[in-house]
């Protein structure tokens, strides 16, 4: 079994670790770094619960190996809210729109929406809803998630101010 030294930042903090080659990123984040907000719903890339942001892109951490994140900047759901506890706009929208029930799918939903709306362009509602079709929520029937996505979307698809 191969062991690898990696260095990465997780939620803005630099970390070093030695990981087995086969260890998935989600297991590494949950077990080795304590980021238990990374939820594992299927381990085969369908449910989206394990989504994290790597160098600005939403990625399914169950489909990636920890060793592949050497040199990367990883953000998990724990890293989104402001230091004073103020929720990220995506988290606030989901809260206001009652987009959460059990909260198991929630971190993944938050990370995908955050990756898309934190970029230079604010996508329109169709783009966000298309992205949401890659997340399975068994509780809410998606009503609050859809309302939140529409609220976060650009009405015009234009550049962000």
């Amino acid at each position: 079994m191969s062991e690898h030294k990696i260095e990465l930042t997780i939620n803005g903090r630099r970390q070093q670790a030695t990981v087995e080659g086969r260890k998935t990123l989600c297991d590494f984040l949950r077990v080795d770094t304590g980021c238990t907000g990374v939820h594992v719903g299927c381990e085969h890339g369908v449910c989206g619960a394990c989504t994290v942001i790597i160098d600005g892109l939403a990625v399914r951490s169950c489909l990636m190996l920890a060793v592949q994140t050497d040199g990367c900047a990883v953000t998990t759901v724990e890293g989104l809210a402001a230091p004073d506890g103020a929720l990220h706009p995506v988290q606030q929208a989901l809260r206001d729109e009652h987009g959460v029930q059990c909260g198991f799918c929630t971190p993944g939903v938050v990370m995908t929406l955050a990756a898309l709306t934190d970029g230079p362009k604010r996508p329109d509602a169709d783009t966000l809803l298309d992205a949401m079709s890659g997340h399975i929520c068994r509780c809410t029937g998606y009503q609050g998630i859809r309302r939140a996505a529409c609220k976060l979307a650009s009405k015009t698809g234009a550049e962000k101010p």
């Binding site: 238990t36 998990t76 909260g103 198991f104 929630t106």
Partner: peptide, 21 residues
């Protein structure tokens, strides 16, 4: 009233405690 849920503050920030946590 449509009160905001208390549990959402921890669930939205990844601070819930599920059994595997």
């Amino acid at each position: 009233k449509r009160m905001l849920r208390k549990e959402d503050a921890r669930l939205l920030t990844g601070r819930g405690t599920f059994v595997d946590d």
